[in-house]
Design a protein around this nucleic acid. Structure first.
Lengths: 339, 339
DNA sequence: GTGAAAGCGCTAACAA
DNA sequence: TTGTTAGCGCTTTCAC
């Protein structure tokens, strides 16, 4: 059985309070006593029981991270960044998957594991702005993504409209004028698809390039196969285009595959631009130009804000500060697909 | 403040024991009483404090999963499978990253979060058989991977030698006789590289195809860039080959890129075979033939064995049963790269 | 500088 | 069938 404070105290011939003081540096301890305690600790290989500590202190040092699916590279890379940011701050991350499903997302907010975590970083995909009130919860919560804005919880996101505009301008800068988009969602205003589409339109308008609805590829999901299908439809339709802006890298890679199968050359015949800067975009054939959404910064800020809220809460019982909207920086990454 | 058992008991006019019985189904409760308790629970939105329950019961319902790096697709997909298998059994997964680093792996075995988890599934990459004794720990532990065999902990792995042999035979079956390998590790006997190399040799020998050391591409890591480099070296060396067996999919994808850049056609000039059956191998150009290692089954078995050990332990204090070596089934997946 | 004791919320042994 | 009570291991007043 693992050693407890009592065992250490008995061996060192002191009270458990003294041992606790040594372990937590919570009060000055005479040098000689400290040495005796430390000796006992190492002799017994004592390690504090975190569960007991949690019960007493009310915090666990664990934060939750809810993402749609870990096997989607974007979320695996995000999880990696969040774990690294958390580790720097002495926090452990408990990852959970929602499948991007509205119902499961709502459940997640009330999952039993919330009792195990001090707060939650929640990458929302299925819920919409109309669900915002569900985000009014009694624990620290930081929302990620583009589904809910100005809700009752802190929110970290990138400038989607500006980034999509910059991506489109990058293509315009190459002299491309017939720029198709892939990944649009009919009638969506907010959400990544809606915002990125808006950025695309802004760029066209600013450059006085007419918008052609035949160049819009709608897809429900943003997987590789959806990018491939949308591109096939575009090619079959016979509409002319000299560039494609896909709303994420996975769509772009799927589309690029179909373009090449059709005997066209990237970027000579069609320039391709993605969005997310996944690791693998640096290794595709050709390498894929994309938007770096600054995942590291998003993760850092999210963990930072969450930790602040956790601290506020443990001091004051609850935080009254207004929810924060934090926007992070992006960067256009030019690679072979848009030379 | 969140409601406790006491609050519910007071509201329902019963003792906390009765509430506890209702919550845990631990003893029969009169229908009428149960209804009153349930009403109080929902009125107060009572949810049990898992920390307190853990302190009392000595278990947490959380298992650890240590993997090298989540951004490597193989481990993201493995993590997904483990989480799904765990969820079926009512367990939550705490993921931690080791970076495949021996030192960090050793630390992981004694990480403070072990106090938070009932057991650990540990995908080992940096440690070797000589470190096996470190795996003699006082909590349930299941090892994954090919670095440690017959150690003091349970071990779930696939038949690497047989799988690599089958993959090579698949290429031989196409009439290819000059089969290069990529990802070999000089002098390694166990470890994925050593075992897969052995399987390759077995297949050649069985088919009486002479082994040519010039066809062996050594790489330290198994990333895309390593596959690309190894293939470049192979092409530069001028040695002839009509097929490549890469020891994982990522290497294969990197190699395939270089093959195509060199103006060769896959599979006409060079057939390519990977290993792992990553999601993305179904979408590459051409799609990649590979070995499906049965990640789902590995995950299922690992969680199952771990849970058994956890239960044994909570019953008997400790498990005396000998460590188990479990081997799972694999499957050759033929795709465009080996038509 | 150190000790005694209460109690975090829960489960389980024992009583009634 | 239900209630009482003793801890799980720790932190934290409050004495000394």
């Amino acid at each position: 059985m693992a050693a407890t404070l009592h065992d250490v105290a008995r061996l060192a011939g002191v009270s458990i309070k003294t041992v606790s003081n040594v372990v937590n540096d919570s009060a000055p301890v005479r040098e000689q006593t400290r040495a005796r305690v430390l000796a006992a600790i190492s002799q017994l290989d004592y390690r504090p029981n975190l569960t007991a500590r949690s019960l007493r202190s009310g915090t666990t040092g664990v934060i939750g991270l809810a993402v749609p699916e870990l096997r989607l590279s974007y979320f695996a890379e995000l999880a990696d960044s969040v774990m690294k940011a958390a580790e720097k701050r002495g926090l452990t991350v408990l990852i959970e998957q929602t499948n991007g499903d509205r119902e499961r997302e709502l459940e997640m907010l009330r999952s039993p594991s919330r009792r195990f975590t001090d707060g939650l970083i929640f990458s929302v995909l299925g819920m919409g702005n109309e669900d915002a009130e569900f985000l009014r919860v009694d624990y620290p919560l930081v929302i990620l993504g583009e589904r809910v804005f100005h809700g009752p919880a802190d929110h970290v996101t990138m400038r989607n409209v500006e980034a999509a505009r910059a991506a489109t301008e990058h293509l315009l800068g190459l002299g491309r004028r017939r720029i198709a988009v892939i990944g649009a969602h009919e009638g969506e205003i907010i959400g990544s698809a809606g915002l990125r589409f808006a950025g695309y339109r802004e760029a066209l308008d600013a450059a006085s390039v007419p918008f052609d609805p035949r160049l819009v590829g709608y897809t429900t999901l943003w997987h590789r196969s959806n990018g491939a299908e949308a591109m096939r439809a575009l090619l079959d339709s016979g509409v002319e285009f000299d560039a494609v802006f896909a709303f994420n890298d996975t769509l772009a890679l799927g589309a690029m595959r179909v373009i090449q199968e059709a005997g066209l050359v990237v970027p000579r015949d069609v320039a391709v631009m993605g969005f997310d800067n996944l690791d693998e975009t640096a290794y595709s054939i050709p390498t894929l130009s994309t938007v770096d959404p600054g995942r590291e910064e998003i993760a850092e800020r999210a963990v930072e804000v969450l930790q602040e809220r956790i601290r506020e809460r443990s001091r004051n019982g609850a935080s009254l500060a207004a929810p924060r909207e934090i926007e992070t920086a992006f960067r256009i990454v030019g690679r072979e697909s848009t030379v």
